[in-house]
Design a protein around this nucleic acid. Structure first.
Lengths: 98, 98
DNA sequence: ACAAGACTTTCCTTAATGGAAAGTAGGGTG
DNA sequence: CACCCTACTTTCCATTAAGGAAAGTCTTGT
């Protein structure tokens, strides 16, 4: 439980890192938005979200808009903490590198 | 060819990122040193080095010391650039995240 | 030549990724 | 209420990555 970084392999994978980075500064992001900004297939996003969610790093909130169902994704407190720590670990690792 | 970050998947993988981070601030690092600091098997390090070297990111210099052969590893200019860009990409990605 | 150390490659196994396609679920419509 | 459509989810497949142990290769001192 250091307040410093801990490298997290689940978060480190490129797409999941981008997912976390997308969620971190915002309250929430919608599925389709994320899928499009990441440029990946539905199935791929869905599977990554499942992993993050099973790790307790994100929460899913369903709602309907214009008669369609959608979902909002957001980091949980634990997810945010893990992400922040991972970012800190990356910074520590790469500090003084150039 | 921006002077800004480009995410590099070869470099991003945890062990290779640590290898690059180890090499970046130093002139060179020796194989055994690296293997020990990463805590991995010879074979594993050797394979990662091969990938980095095939990408033109590192150079190997053999020398002998105390009657034994050893190798020094160092980033090539291209390797350093790719690493620096990748780090910049990571920072850009995670900026404003917390 | 030979021994020994320092990597390299091979062999095997496990796990991660990705996309297409089929499947499921929830809300709207006639 | 049956049906449909949209929005994900899961399954199926194929590809790739990774790790370690063990065998192999190369270099150097004797």
């Amino acid at each position: 439980m250091s307040n410093h970084g801990e490298f997290n392999e689940l978060i480190h994978a490129p797409i999941r890192l981008r997912i976390c980075a997308s969620l971190a500064p915002l309250k929430y992001v919608e599925f389709a938005q994320l899928r499009d900004s990441l440029g990946i297939a539905d199935s791929v996003l869905s599977k990554h979200l499942k992993q993050l969610s099973e790790a307790g790093f994100i929460d899913v909130e369903k709602f309907s808009k214009g008669g369609r169902s959608h979902m909002r994704l957001m980091l949980t407190p634990n997810g945010r903490q893990a992400y922040v720590r991972h970012v800190a670990a990356l910074r520590a690792l790469t500090e003084g590198s150039y």
